[in-house]
């Protein structure tokens, strides 16, 4: 159940999964706002005190450290909001996740949901979608089962999906 570091990585892997298992795969996006627990508030207060004690070093810290837990909150009781994307295929048990806390990313992420939606609907990919072709072939690390299936199938697939499979085979 990996969390990907970048949304493009998540998108690439998800589109591969959707190509292989378009009927069973589902994408859940979860927007959650949590009030921090008492211990979390204490932790944040401690962190702020520490930061106040060492102002020089603290200035570097929030930028370089991992973004999700850092949350350089002004108010330690401020609720945390996250947006999580999860692609799950119950057949193979594959689960791909990406999490963000940035509002700026939402638009782009929903855009990629739309593009993945085209896979689900079995529509051809959009022409302007440049990232798909090259990247997908390069990062083709989805479940090996998929490739086995592709070989076992051995049926002259229709042109829509044929392209994807040929790429995978060519890579091997």
């Amino acid at each position: 159940m990996p969390y990907f570091k970048t949304s493009t990585e998540w998108f690439d892997q998800s589109s591969l999964l959707l190509k292989a298992r378009p009927t069973t795969t589902r994408i859940t996006s979860k927007y959650t706002v949590l009030k921090p627990s008492a211990s979390k508030i204490k932790k944040r207060q401690k962190y702020l005190e520490k930061k106040a004690a060492r102002p020089a070093k603290a200035e570097e810290a929030p930028r370089t450290s991992s973004p999700p837990p850092a949350a350089p909150a002004q108010d330690p009781e401020e609720p945390t909001a996250t947006f999580t994307l999860k692609t799950f295929d119950p057949d193979s048990g594959t689960c791909l996740q990406y999490e963000t806390a940035k509002a700026a990313e939402v638009g782009r992420l929903i855009g990629s949901l739309g593009r993945l939606g085209r896979h689900m609907a079995a529509l051809p990919e959009v022409a302007e979608d440049l990232s798909a072709g090259a990247d997908v072939a390069a990062t083709g690390t989805s479940t090996p089962k998929v490739e086995e299936d592709a070989k076992m199938g051995g049926v002259p697939a229709e042109q829509k999906t044929g392209g994807g499979k040929k790429k995978k085979k060519g890579k091997k």
């Binding site: 706002v33 909001a81 940035k102 700026a104 638009g107």
Partner: peptide, 25 residues
């Protein structure tokens, strides 16, 4: 399927407006 693109444009707007708790730039 033919209304997919239009739907997702609106969907993105709705989500951007709705997810106000996330960190602003």
């Amino acid at each position: 399927s033919d209304r997919l693109d239009a739907f997702f444009v609106r969907y993105a707007e709705a989500c951007k407006a709705g997810m106000s708790g996330l960190k602003k730039r």
